[in-house]
Design a protein around this nucleic acid. Structure first.
Lengths: 241, 241
DNA sequence: AGCGTCCCTGACAGTTTATGTCAGTAAGCG
DNA sequence: CGCTTACTGACATAAACTGTCAGGGACGCT
């Protein structure tokens, strides 16, 4: 086995493990001595691979390195660039930051004759930053609540100006072009409800956690929508509160 | 110099060249013998790097390998996934195909506990395929015309139902959320004009090529828009025909 | 056809790098 | 504290790599 191949396999081993690996375990797996593993680890570290080692414990790959390199062809890269521009324009501030970081990474590997010319990718998205702050108000705390599965208390105003306050369990968000819709479980109605993000007046993330289940999850909601759409092809708008 | 490093430099050399490189040129550049270059090429080929060699000519890197691997962290990947979903939903058929390919590649490298759960990325884009066929009608021939710099003859209907026919030089397209706008040079007006893609009734790509210049290009158009926006912050809509 | 330029491969002697064993130091955990 | 682990240097041996040389083949041009 070539050394380069072994280094690659070592990285893959570490990448596919969420708990630590000892040098002994790795040496047995790759059929080399422990001393060789220590050397390999050093080589990888010198090459920039962020491996963390702790005496008496073992090795782990730094969290930020857990995704391997991706290979895209030109057309895929163009689609990704366009998409990232959309996220940068239509998403909230945090999303935009990450999208722009990804854009920079992509641009940094494009050959010179493709990088500097806007005409190399004549598909643009206007910078809607100021407008979008309105449509993505509350997006960031809401995404955090979705991720951490925390109930949120909201004040909401419907299209007909009716106000309401309630506590909901946020499950996900859907982008409809300019407008974001929140999918949540509403205890007031004991059912799913969707809310236009820009119509939420205020949001308080509570300390109360919630669980999802087979019958209360974003996946279940999407399944119901698909069934509903199959029965009533004209129906496109889910229940809004 | 380590061999691994030289293999990397060799790949970079080939990647940054659009014409062929001979073994002799590479050996001089990397200060090794030609025999070593032949060995290196064989190693790279065995590792899957698609290098094409032709006797009497030289080597080139297969077109599909001209972009190197990209490394993204989790947040960037999430932004890219969301963006690709937007392109898949809001772009034309070709764009959607490439976006979905990119999505599959990204999903294939996600760890299992992140891949199968919609709840791992609760930011969705509805499938607007049927609706979007309307908004992206003529998108593909138009993009082709932009790329090949070919004049197109269009029939257009304005919002006030006025019809017109003209020949234009398409420069780029802008996504405004649902709606695509074409940026073109209009000979009838001797100026830039924008057209809503969905209001174009018909399109004929002509055999006539056009050139761009410093004063007639997408870049120039964007520059003018920025200047116009700086002078009149309330103005957001460019001239529509 | 011959010629020049290139890709391609095997063999071999010499050079360089990598490996395993051994010994020793240091850190984390119960 | 003892046990388990990470960590490093030294050294003999094994493995890999390199350049030179020789030979074969493909392609384009005259």
């Amino acid at each position: 086995m070539h050394r380069a191949e072994r280094l690659f396999q070592l990285t893959t081993l570490l990448r596919n493990r969420r708990t630590v690996l000892t040098a002994k375990q790795m040496s047995e797996h790759l059929r080399v001595s422990e001393r060789t593993i220590y050397r390999d680890i050093q080589s990888l570290s010198l090459s920039g691979v962020p491996i963390e080692g702790e005496a008496g414990v073992g090795y782990r790959l730094s969290h930020r390195y857990q995704l391997p390199p991706l290979m895209f062809d030109r057309e895929e890269v163009e689609a990704l660039l366009l998409g990232a521009r959309m996220v940068s324009s239509w998403g909230d501030t945090d999303m935009a930051i990450h999208a722009n970081q990804a854009i920079q990474k992509i641009l940094s590997v494009l050959p010179d004759h493709l990088r500097h010319s806007d005409e190399s990718l004549p598909l643009l998205v206007p910078n809607m930053e100021e407008v979008q702050k309105y449509y993505t108000a509350h997006s960031q705390p809401m995404r955090e609540a979705i991720r951490l599965r925390q109930r949120v208390a909201i004040d909401y105003v419907r299209a007909d100006e009716q106000h309401s306050s309630r506590t909901i369990e946020p499950l996900g968000m859907i982008f409809w072009g300019k407008v974001w819709t929140l999918v949540a479980w509403c205890h007031l109605r004991d059912d799913y409800r969707t809310f236009r993000l820009d119509r939420i007046q205020s949001i308080v993330v509570t300390d109360e956690k919630f669980d999802t289940s087979d019958s209360k999850s974003l996946k279940h909601f999407l399944h119901l929508m698909k069934e509903k759409y199959a029965q009533e092809p004209e129906a496109t708008a889910p229940h809004e509160c």
